[in-house]
């Protein structure tokens, strides 16, 4: 265990040194990703400005302030995924294609660990902090709401953090499984695209899918098969409590259970997929 932590810290340090050796580029990347996030925020700001009662779904409680907590949560999770996993998943596909995975297989350390963390993209962490700022700002606004104030206990804040952790585990599992498919597909150039399209579904409160046959179908698929819907929904619900006025609802607890079950299951499945992929791997180099 100690070795793993040390190796991880070395990876983190090396990546930081590497990122900071091109300082202007690093800053530019931070500015770019922050601008994207702000555009995203402004987009919803425009929508919410269209009417007083606008919410994401009738009776769901996702009005402006609650929804921006949701959005901030999505940014936090996205930033973690992009900092820690994204560059590595892409690199993993490349390792398979070039045959350089041989070198990773030879090292006396768990291969999945070794390909999962060597390169961290520190600039992506900018949105992590921006997400925290947004969540804190809107949570504060909700707590001072005149009509329907939000009250938060330390326990709730802690569970928010733990739930985000569980969500990140799910995202990691989906991503590493996707990346592992390059063993069979040879080149997985579309990895980023597929990832983008899949995760597009997790960026909204799950209530929007709970209608119609197609909607429920999507809801079921993204809750149980590729369980990305619980990733942001559970932590955001815990903090923003959209239904606090009507005394909350019971299915909250079921969602929490689903989140943790899915985190464990997907981690296990991704481990299996990874092992399976390795057993099918034939080195490409000579």
């Amino acid at each position: 265990m100690k070795t793993y932590i040390q190796v991880f810290l070395t990876f983190a340090r090396n990546s930081l040194v590497r990122d900071l050796s091109f300082r202007t580029n690093f800053l530019l990347q931070c500015v770019t990703s922050i601008s994207w996030a702000i555009m995203n925020w402004a987009f919803f700001k425009i929508i919410f400005a269209q009417g007083k009662n606008i919410a994401i779904g009738k009776g769901t409680g996702w009005t402006e302030n609650e929804f921006f907590i949701f959005l901030g949560t999505v940014w936090i999770i996205n930033a973690i995924v992009q900092t820690f996993f994204m560059p590595n998943a892409q690199e993993f596909s490349e390792l398979i294609r070039t045959g350089n995975l041989d070198f990773a297989l030879l090292k006396p350390i768990d291969t999945q660990f070794l390909v999962s963390f060597p390169r961290l993209n520190w600039a992506s962490l900018a949105n992590f902090f921006l997400g925290i700022v947004v969540v804190v700002f809107y949570a504060n606004a909700l707590m001072h709401d005149a009509v329907n104030p939000l009250s938060l206990s330390v326990f709730q804040v802690l569970s928010y953090i733990v739930f985000i952790g569980a969500g990140v585990v799910i995202m990691y599992s989906v991503m590493i499984s996707l990346a592992a498919t390059s063993v069979w597909l040879g080149r997985n150039q579309n990895l980023y695209m597929i990832w983008f399209y899949l995760t597009n579904f997790y960026r909204y409160p799950m209530e929007i899918y709970q209608r119609g046959v197609i909607g429920w179908g999507l809801w079921g698929f993204f809750s149980f098969v590729v369980p990305v819907l619980v990733v942001a929904n559970v932590p955001a619900r815990t903090l923003a409590q959209p239904l606090r006025e009507s005394g909350g609802n019971r299915w909250e607890n079921w969602l929490i259970l689903l989140l943790f079950t899915m985190a464990l299951v997907s981690l296990w499945v991704s481990r299996r997929v990874f092992r399976w992929a390795l057993s099918s791997y034939r080195s490409a180099s000579s």
């Binding site: 994401i56 769901t60 399209y197």
Partner: peptide, 16 residues
């Protein structure tokens, strides 16, 4: 992504 947009706007217009 268009599909998610349809569902999002559906939910939003419901509130109107």
């Amino acid at each position: 992504p268009f599909a998610t947009q349809v569902f999002m706007y559906w939910a939003i217009f419901e509130t109107l």
